[in-house]
Design a protein around this nucleic acid. Structure first.
Lengths: 211, 211
DNA sequence: GGATGGATGTGAGCAGTGTACACATTCATG
DNA sequence: CATGAATGTGTACACTGCTCACATCCATCC
């Protein structure tokens, strides 16, 4: 996808490509693809630079460390998640359904990209002072917060909305984690119907009831 | 704590200690302590053996790989979690309260041992074929399942119980994860009261209602 | 249009890692 | 007390993240 410009060509991409043609982006893509394609999500910086076809240290012109690369990948993951959730919300005229669908989208995102999902919430996500990543995560949260506020017809800073948002996020996040850990698979036949059941029960008895 | 037996002494511990005195246990303890005591939960096998005062490869007589050591540490974590939850359940005569208290114990375990908690649910927990660890995790799940079955006064294999258990586990697990990721801290003043609120809301409207 | 300086990529090298292999020591048991 | 198994040690190897000095390329200005 990202071809090296051997001498002077391939000016087809976005600006900011000096020798390689946006090496930063290429490394990110390679890393993300690596997460998707293999069983073992551990990878070395050297492996990525080998894939991209560049010397090891070229990476250090774009990322201060391997950790910084991982943080950028996580941020990209949050961006994609936010997009998918926004789509889910907008696809449903009924706000309650839209909110529930966003939850389903969350779980399915985790199922489709388990390694990326883990990366997004791994240790360094809490530790690293990466600004971009925290901003992305914040975006995901505030999106859900406002969606729930619309459902409950209350301001976003209403305590009930805040607690409800954390509750919903916890449920969805926990379910995602347990599923990708294979800790739910072993107890149920079909994960899809389980998700439906969990959500249905939630809808009937839980916080989505405007009471 | 684990002193090396220079020549022939320190037979004070459980059997199975040849040269060192249960090196396996010592490595586990060192690893767990390492997780508690430091900011950066990454550690090398060599570091652990240095702490214990033994050559690097001695560890390989007790663990097939570093991954196996991590799996054993995770299993130990599950054991401790199960113990704390059991205590929480038994401390309350009312079964519903006991169940809720077990949930609180779950969250607090994660808060007190964030690195260990992460390890227990990290990538390799799903990947690794470590039998002991999966057995321990299973134990945690079935304990909660039976506790909920008692609350609802239904058999443990009742679909409603199963769904409720996964729901409860998801909520508690997700909340734990979000808290230790610092993703909740930034939105609320006091985590403790938040937990109470989440649980209270759950108790009032959720699956704990016998309807 | 050619010089200049900053952005970008390269190569060698360092300390540290996980682990395999051959060997040494110690223990339980005959 | 000899023997074999269990346990610990030393050496070595391929690999890692990362630093430093150097090479290359591009945009820009005279």
């Amino acid at each position: 996808m990202w071809t090296v410009s051997t001498s002077k060509s391939s000016k087809t991409e976005t600006p900011g490509h000096y020798h390689h043609g946006n090496l930063r982006r290429a490394l990110l893509e390679a890393g993300l693809e690596r997460l998707e394609s293999t069983q073992n999500p551990e990878f070395s910086l050297r492996e990525l630079t080998r894939i991209v076809g560049v010397s090891v240290n070229a990476a250090y012109r774009h990322f201060a460390s391997k950790e910084a690369l991982l943080a950028a990948m996580a941020a990209e993951g949050f961006h994609r998640l936010v997009v998918e959730q926004a789509h889910a919300v907008q696809a449903h005229p009924d706000k309650g359904e839209g909110f529930a669908e966003a939850g389903r989208a969350y779980v399915n995102f985790a199922r489709r990209h388990p390694a990326l999902f883990r990366l997004m919430f791994s240790r360094f996500a809490a530790t690293s002072p990466d600004r971009e990543m925290h901003a992305s995560a914040q975006l995901a949260y505030s999106g859900m917060l406002h969606s729930l506020a619309a459902v409950l017809d209350k301001p976003a800073d209403d305590p009930e909305v805040k607690v409800g948002a954390i509750q919903a996020w916890s449920l969805v996040h926990g379910l995602s984690q347990l599923i990708i850990d294979g800790q739910v698979d072993s107890h149920t036949d079909n994960v899809d119907t389980l998700i439906d059941e969990v959500f249905k029960a939630k809808l009937e008895t839980g916080f989505l009831q405007k009471q």
